[in-house]
């Protein structure tokens, strides 16, 4: 059984200090079939490691100041062969078989239901997410991936520029995203929730800030969300919203961003069609609020140094307000 706050156990066992209460992105707090198996391997390995380390230290102490009889036994060459060759040979064989067995069961997961397939593209320094619904438009999003609970999900992983690595510890191991290749990660998440992840392969400049959320929802919620996400957001009704839309178009935002239903059809940056429904702005660096949106537009290079979006300090304060209002209004009607 996996303890509820595993980090605490590790910590308590190792150094009696407080503070390790975070399961935000913990390997030891698994929520998918795959991650659970890996944690079992991990606990097994911690046990094995502790045992061998204690063995080495105890033998060492005995060798230094142990009883003469034991020291004489330890000093024999045959002891070296037993402890140094035979013992590791046996234990490592066990470990190897166990590891391979887990790999196999990771490959042979149940393939029930209609498999969900989502494409994730690593870019410097954000995640492009593409849902290929069987019918209807391709839905593009960024930095948050919504998946259904309980059914197998295949993530097709690609890279647009340099190598990235897709890693959401709570739901599974990492898989690299390599230019020119498509790698796959298969998962079955077993409980709804929001799981944080971040790029695990150094990808230059703002690698440290390349985070994302995986939002696992029940199958019915997921289907409903997918339906909503396919819709085109309504034209803003307020004056400020309309003004914001004209600023959005006049300031050239459409050169990089897409908002379905408008002339903005750029593909360099994240699709903003439903940005109003997202959780964060600036690739998980800031929660989605009006202030943060405005800050990212005029001061993005401080929020996330080196990102591709230029700072639009040319915008007057009221233009900026209007733009933010418009962006926040971009979501499907509930």
């Amino acid at each position: 059984m996996i303890p509820a706050r595993p980090c605490w156990y590790l910590f308590g066992a190792s150094m009696l200090l407080g503070g390790c209460t975070s399961d935000v992105q913990s390997v030891m707090n698994p929520s998918s079939l795959q991650a659970v198996q890996i944690v079992e391997v991990a606990w097994f390995l911690f046990g094995f490691g502790t045992f061998v380390l204690v063995l080495v230290i105890v033998t060492l102490l005995l060798a230094i100041r142990g009883p003469l009889r034991i020291r004489q036994a330890l000093a024999r060459e045959s002891t070296v062969i037993w402890l140094g060759i035979a013992f590791p040979a046996v234990t490592l064989t066990v470990l190897l078989v166990y590891g391979v067995w887990v790999m196999r069961s990771n490959l042979n997961l149940p393939h029930g239901g209609s498999p969900v397939s989502i494409e994730v593209v690593g870019e410097q320094w954000w995640w492009r997410v593409l849902y290929h619904a069987p019918a209807g438009p391709q839905i593009a999003s960024a930095n948050e991936i919504r998946i259904p609970v309980g059914s197998p999900v295949t993530l097709n992983l690609k890279a647009a520029d340099v190598i990235h690595s897709f890693w959401v510890p709570s739901i599974g191991g990492k898989v690299d995203m390599i230019p020119g290749r498509t790698t796959q990660l298969q998962l079955t998440v077993d409980r709804p929730g929001v799981y944080r992840g971040q790029c695990a392969e150094y990808c230059g400049g703002a690698h440290a800030l390349m985070a994302m959320d995986v939002i696992a929802m029940s199958s019915s919620d997921y289907a409903a969300w997918l339906e909503r996400a396919a819709t085109v957001p309504a034209t803003p009704e307020t004056d400020i919203g309309l003004h914001g839309r004209s600023i959005f178009l006049a300031a050239g935002c459409g050169a990089c961003h897409t908002v379905r239903g408008t002339a903005a059809a750029g593909s360099l940056g994240p699709d903003l069609t439903h940005i109003g429904a997202r959780r964060s702005v600036g690739i998980k660096t800031l929660p989605l609020t009006r202030e943060n949106l405005m800050r990212f537009i005029v001061d993005g290079q401080h929020v996330k140094p080196g990102n591709l979006m230029p700072e639009f300090r040319v915008l007057q304060p009221q233009q900026l307000e209007a733009l933010a209002s418009y962006l926040l209004s971009l979501k499907a009607a509930d």
């Binding site: 178009l249 006049a250 300031a251 050239g252 459409g254």
Partner: peptide, 9 residues
């Protein structure tokens, strides 16, 4: 042309 057009800011 997304910025350098006559309708832009």
């Amino acid at each position: 042309m997304d910025c350098h057009n006559t309708a832009a800011l």
